[in-house]
Design a protein around this nucleic acid. Structure first.
Length: 279
DNA sequence: ATGCCCTTCTGTGAAGGA
């Protein structure tokens, strides 16, 4: 491929739990300019629809769709690489669910879902039950997306650490709603549908975190959790060339407790290596 | 075992977060 003038273009797709899109607007804008993502899923807007800072985001070249609510939750998709064709703004399966936690759109030939899975604490309790029900609904819906011929990218705050490698102190989190056996099993069942956990696929065996509590100098001590994930169906996974956590914004003043996670996809499948002796 | 810290709201402490 050296010197190939037709080298594949890349699209950079990120997810960022901003923990308040208005309180964190300077951080978000600074990060957009620094990181130059093409498509971004945001979570925890904590703002009603009419208070989404559309103009400031548009001034940086992004169009956006969002699904907010007062005080809590809220998700958005930004794009600077073409129109956002919204396909849904709620997870099916519960018409009474009032939480704004899911948004989905076709952008530039990729189906993008942005989600904010319930926290679920305390466990046990109704919030934990709601988390497991939400997971069931997600499982049902993603079963219909995983087999699409187009690349599908599921990005967001899943509020799950999938394995011990994703927790600074696994022993202390065993009974927590983010790490409990039922929740890790629910995440594993999702992957069994055929999704690739992009960060883990490119960094096997390595501790990776995307969240650090505000307390006790957690970031300075790197006492973190990996709860922000990007899942890829097979057509998307075949184009995956990079996946990283951008830790830089976590060190800024007045910042989110999450760091952005991002991937790069080639605009066509990577060339697969042929087995030796293949004609 | 708990608090720690931070957000939001017509708030002035409470609730939710993870």
């Amino acid at each position: 491929m050296l010197g190939n003038p037709n080298r594949a273009r890349l699209v950079k797709i990120a997810t960022f739990n901003v923990n308040g899109v208005n309180g964190r607007l300077p951080v978000l804008l600074r990060w957009l300019e620094l990181a130059q993502p093409d498509i971004v899923c945001l979570q925890e807007l904590k703002a009603p629809d009419e208070r989404f800072p559309e103009r400031a985001i548009r001034d940086l070249g992004y169009e956006a769709i969002w699904h907010g609510q007062k005080s809590w939750n809220g998700v958005a998709i930004l794009s600077r690489v073409g129109e956002i064709h919204e396909t849904r703004r709620a997870l099916p399966g519960d018409l009474d669910d009032s939480h704004s936690r899911y948004i989905e759109a076709a952008v530039n030939g990729v189906l993008i879902a942005g989600l904010y899975l319930p926290n679920g604490n305390p466990r046990p309790g109704p919030k934990f039950d709601y988390k497991l029900r939400w997971f069931d609904r997600l499982h049902d819906h993603l079963s219909e997306l995983v087999g699409l011929d187009a690349p599908v990218v599921i990005a967001g705050d899943f509020n799950v650490m999938p394995t011990d490698l994703d927790v600074y102190a696994p022993g202390r989190w065993r009974d927590d709603a983010l790490f409990a056996p039922e929740v890790r099993a629910a995440y594993a069942r999702l992957l069994e549908q055929g999704w690739t956990d992009a960060l883990r696929a490119l960094h096997p065996g390595e501790p990776i975190y995307s969240f650090w509590k505000y307390w006790r100098d957690s970031f300075q001590r790197d006492a973190g959790l990996r709860i922000d994930h990007i899942l890829l169906n097979k057509p998307a996974a075949a184009r995956l060339v990079a996946a990283e956590v951008d830790r830089r914004p976590r060190a800024w003043q007045k910042t989110s407790d999450h760091a952005p996670v991002w991937i790069e996809l080639a605009d066509r499948p990577k060339r697969t290596r042929r087995p030796k002796g293949d004609a």
